[in-house]
Design a protein around this nucleic acid. Sequence first.
DNA 1: GCATACACTGACACCGGTTTCCAAGTATGC
DNA 2: GCATACTTGGAAACCGGTGTCAGTGTATGC
Lengths: 352, 352
Amino acid sequence: MAEQDKASSTAKRAAKPTINDVARLAGVSKKTVSRVINRSTLLNSETRERVEQVIAELGYVPNPQARALALRRNFLIGLIHDNPNAQTVLNVQQGILEALQGTEFELVVRPVDRRSPLMLEDVRAFLNRQRLFGVLLLPPISENDVLANLCDELGCRYVRMGSAQLDDPEHLVASNDREAVREATTYLVDQGHRLIALIEGPRGFRSAAERRAGFEQAIEAAGIELPRNYIAEGNYTFESGIEAANRLLDLGPPPTAIFASNDEMAAGVVHAANQRGLSVPENLSVIGFDDTAIAAHIWPPLTTVRWPIIPMARSAALKLVGSPGDRTKAAAEPSFFLSSLVRRASVAPPRQ
Amino acid sequence: MAEQDKASSTAKRAAKPTINDVARLAGVSKKTVSRVINRSTLLNSETRERVEQVIAELGYVPNPQARALALRRNFLIGLIHDNPNAQTVLNVQQGILEALQGTEFELVVRPVDRRSPLMLEDVRAFLNRQRLFGVLLLPPISENDVLANLCDELGCRYVRMGSAQLDDPEHLVASNDREAVREATTYLVDQGHRLIALIEGPRGFRSAAERRAGFEQAIEAAGIELPRNYIAEGNYTFESGIEAANRLLDLGPPPTAIFASNDEMAAGVVHAANQRGLSVPENLSVIGFDDTAIAAHIWPPLTTVRWPIIPMARSAALKLVGSPGDRTKAAAEPSFFLSSLVRRASVAPPRQ
DNA sequence: GCATACACTGACACCGGTTTCCAAGTATGC
DNA sequence: GCATACTTGGAAACCGGTGTCAGTGTATGC
């Protein structure tokens, strides 16, 4: 790094060495340099060393745009999501970036609006414009089969994250939501609760259905009769958690425990309870799902199901780009993750 | 290079029309098509119409990789950040994407670790590899002058978001943190508080210094003597808010109101108060800063300073890429935003 | 009527890589 | 010793756009 003065920035850019510079200084052809970069085996080790030395001296970095053009694919991974939870999205981004660390891939984010009629056209334009290497689909939009088919149709690799048998293993990273919710609900039963309500996610989503199924299995296994109106619907937002909780707590008899299908809604339940002068967990036990930051940050700290979203995202990204140096290893990436109960302070035996 | 992709997907990609196809069908040269795409004025309107029609028929979309190569710059905006707050980061992403809507630009995210000694080298490698159109720097890392200089040195445009006179207007989008904090603190004084403590951000950050200055100005203006130990340091995380609150509440006399320099820490204060059996706002008033989702979602809802981060991010992105069609308008983008107090339920007059 | 200016268009080189194809050099088989 | 196979390296085409510059056709000036 020689002195870098305030020369015009164009000059600095122009000074960037290209493959031609490397070839000239090493006394070989472009193609030979290209072989070195791409680790071709058809190369004399002596030649390789010489080229590598020149590359190091010049600080040469291949131009990704040129490679992208020649290879007919770029090195961008898209993250398409409509998840309302900021912490979840950021965790996913973190997991993906961990997997992409040290590779030439970059992460491009693309939030979408599930309810917009233009959503599919937006994504189509996006995929058509940028010829992404591949995309990652985050729940809940990952459950949209039309979207997945669109990716396929446009020749774009994809991996979906989800909670059920959404797709082939090649295209899916999943977790055992049903079992985890069953475990959490059973925990409430074991604490002595009989009046247990559920706030589920929006109808029509498999993740919501999976969690509901786990809940119902646990209730049934305990021999408890579940009133129809003990199942309320939310949309994974804090506000919907408040509303659902108010509906449930207005019932007679009101539940002594509520399982909410994510932490945001669980936080809403705690909020609604506080507003009514009910204390958690003395008057009402609450369990959430996800174990995002909010779970530990509200009072009382929330008992919740830890959804291993970061490892899942990492795995999904690896599935997309393959392990460095070995494309085939990608398929061997684990695609099933276990969620587990985290016991904090929002559950207690019911008052009697 | 084992087996090739499925023929189908290759065929689909290959079927994509190029500028040559358009030129041939329209009976003009590549260059003319290029002129149509780039809205050159030196064009017969008849020719333009014919070309546009062919483009529409073919569904032609220019290949960004090829353009990036020819123009020597790509259409990627980088977001470099180390902000610990997920909601803030996501809001920023949203604001940027709003500004990029309808353009050919995409957003690439790049979280960094401020404390890592490799941080600067990481960023250098990132900028050298991808030749980004420009980058956006989010606080607190946006206050790092070395980083900004690095961007400049590598010929990469940048805009910093921050709270003070960090840089030239061309490179800065700022907010009036000092005045907003003064207003919030004055509100506490007006409620009758005299024992008011501050939890500030990490020393060495201008944003932290600005907020502290606003706090001290208000205290002084009220003629209150501020004990040295009424200023505690946090690092913007929830946990540091708990710790700082505990230190403050152990003092004699303990404060009756605490201003925390962000919502996360304010939530930590509420958390710590609850743990001690203190009720907010009856026993302790709390004000936060940012107005992220957590502020409305904890109990009681937090009185806080709304930091207009989404418009700020939008403005920063526009400053970087320029308004569509008019590059000069970019400089005219407002670069100063007003924060304002949002009154919720975490403040009450002190008990006496 | 002719020179000049101007508007529009196309041929061609170029961005920085990869790929194809071929030639030269070397090792091996008979 | 010669034919053949295998290694290694280079020339040129190509990916899909943009910049330069020259050429054509029309309007204007005198």
